[in-house]
C-alpha cells in the first residue's frame, strides 16, 4: 500500500516536472516561432479556431436561449423579467462563455491536436524530422500550441456574443421582454471588471487546453491504443483543470 502510494507520488512528480520543462521549452520557442514560422501559426489558428466556429456558434446560441428561458421562468415570479438580459449577460460573459468554450475546444480542437501529434509520432514522422535536424517541438508542437492560445479568446468572444443574441431572440422575440430594458439593464450592470474576468479566463483556459492537447500528443505511447488513451486524457484533464482554475479565478475576482 505504502509502496503503491510512493510509486504514484513519484510518477506524479515526474509527470509534473516533465510538463513544466515542456512548457518552459514551448515558451522559449514561442516568440521565434511567431516571427519565423508565422504562416504555420496562422494555419493552426485556422485549424483550431475557424474550424471550431460552427460548433461554438450553435452551442452559444442555444445556451443563450436556455438562459433566457430559465431566467424568465424564475424572474417573473419576482416581477423582474426585465432582468433576463442582466442574468444572461453575467452568466455568459463571466462563466459560461469561457468554460463551455474551453470544454468544446478540448473536445473539438484538443482531441484533433493530440491525435494528430500522436499519429505523427506513431508513424515516425517526428523521428524523421529529428533526423533531418528539424526540432519537432519547434516545427510541429509550438505552432499548434500558439494556434490554440490565439484562437481561444476569439472563440470565447464569439460564443458569448452569439449567446447574447440567442438570449435576445428568446427573451425579446419569443417571451416579449422589452428590448430596451433587456439591453439597457445589461449595460448598466456589467462593467469592465466583469468583461476583464471573462477575457482573463478565456486566455488562461486557452493556454491550459492547448498545453494539455500538445503535451498528451507529444508524450503519447506511439500505438493505436496509446494515441486513443492520450486523446481521452486530453479531454478529461482539460475539463478538470479548467473547472478548478475557473473556481480560483472567480474567487479572486469576487468583490469584498
Amino acid at each position: 500500500m505504502i509502496r503503491e502510494i510512493y510509486i504514484l507520488l513519484v510518477e506524479f512528480v515526474r509527470t509534473f516536472g516533465g510538463l513544466t520543462l515542456f512548457l518552459i521549452e514551448l515558451l522559449q520557442q514561442a516568440p521565434r516561432t511567431l516571427v519565423l514560422r508565422f504562416r504555420l501559426v496562422v494555419a493552426q489558428v485556422y485549424n483550431a479556431g475557424a474550424l471550431s466556429l460552427v460548433i461554438i456558434m450553435i452551442c452559444g446560441g442555444f445556451v443563450g436561449g436556455v438562459l433566457a428561458l430559465q431566467g424568465y421562468a424564475n424572474l417573473t415570479r419576482f416581477g423582474a423579467e426585465d432582468a433576463v438580459g442582466v442574468f444572461a449577460g453575467f452568466a455568459l460573459i463571466k462563466e459560461l462563455g469561457p468554460v463551455i468554450t474551453a470544454l468544446l475546444f478540448a473536445g473539438r480542437a484538443g482531441t484533433a491536436l493530440t491525435s494528430e501529434i500522436g499519429l505523427m509520432k506513431a508513424t515516425d514522422q517526428l523521428s524523421a524530422m529529428e533526423m533531418m535536424a528539424v526540432d519537432p517541438i519547434r516545427r510541429v508542437v509550438v505552432p499548434r500550441f500558439l494556434g490554440g492560445v490565439i484562437a481561444m479568446p476569439f472563440l470565447v468572444a464569439i460564443f458569448s456574443c452569439v449567446g447574447l443574441l440567442g438570449a435576445h431572440l428568446v427573451g425579446v422575440n419569443m417571451l416579449g421582454i422589452d428590448v430596451g430594458a433587456f439591453w439597457q439593464q445589461m449595460q448598466n450592470s456589467l462593467d469592465l471588471r466583469d468583461v476583464t474576468e471573462g477575457i482573463l479566463k478565456s486566455i488562461v483556459f486557452g493556454f491550459i487546453a492547448s498545453l494539455m492537447a500538445v503535451w498528451e500528443g507529444f508524450n503519447s505511447i506511439p500505438t493505436a491504443e496509446g494515441v486513443s488513451r492520450a486523446t481521452t486524457r486530453t479531454v478529461v484533464i482539460t475539463a478538470i483543470a479548467v473547472l478548478i482554475t475557473d473556481f480560483m479565478i472567480t474567487a479572486a475576482f469576487l468583490r469584498n
Partner: peptide
C-alpha cells in the same frame, strides 16, 4: 547533434513521409 544530423540521411522502414 543537429549539425551532425545534417550529415545523415535516413530512410525509415515505413517511409515516415509528412502526411
Amino acid at each position: 547533434l543537429y549539425q551532425l544530423r545534417k550529415r545523415f540521411g535516413m530512410l525509415f522502414q515505413n517511409g515516415a513521409l509528412l502526411t
